[in-house]
Amino acid sequence: MEHTLGGPDATRRGVIGWLLGTSAVAFALSVIYPMARYLIPPTAGESQAASVTLPIKPAEVRLNSGQIFKFGNRPGILVRTPAGDLRAFSAVCTHLNCTVQYRADLSHIWCACHNGHFDLNGQNVAGPPPRALDAYVVNVRGAQIVVSKGA
């Protein structure tokens, strides 16, 4: 025993050091993992509605005007063109998610945040937006306006 003290002792120290090190890492992980998971919000149920009946009557929508409506939990914009057509688009600007509005003076859709312009087909025509607004289908059933996502 006396002659081999160095060997087994060094090994023993190594094993204890290894155990201590791995326990420390395991402990740290067991603390960090739940915290990290806790910070990630649970996925909320996205609204699955494919269509929505607006609380607006067709007769109330003036020529050359637009208004925001709720489509699930996101805003949409209903537009009556100067020619009299009813059209609906997602009101979420494709640039940085601001809510767009109808500019009667320009007769098209405009985003105030970064000066993005969209025409009456939702096409991005000027400013920074990279894509067109998503278009919805508008159906007038009697005194009701029903907006639905395209096929």
């Binding site: 914009i77 809510t99 985003c111 105030a112 945040c113």
Partner: peptide, 10 residues
Amino acid sequence: DPFTPAPVGI
């Protein structure tokens, strides 16, 4: 109000 357009001059 999430259901109003972004205000002018934001």
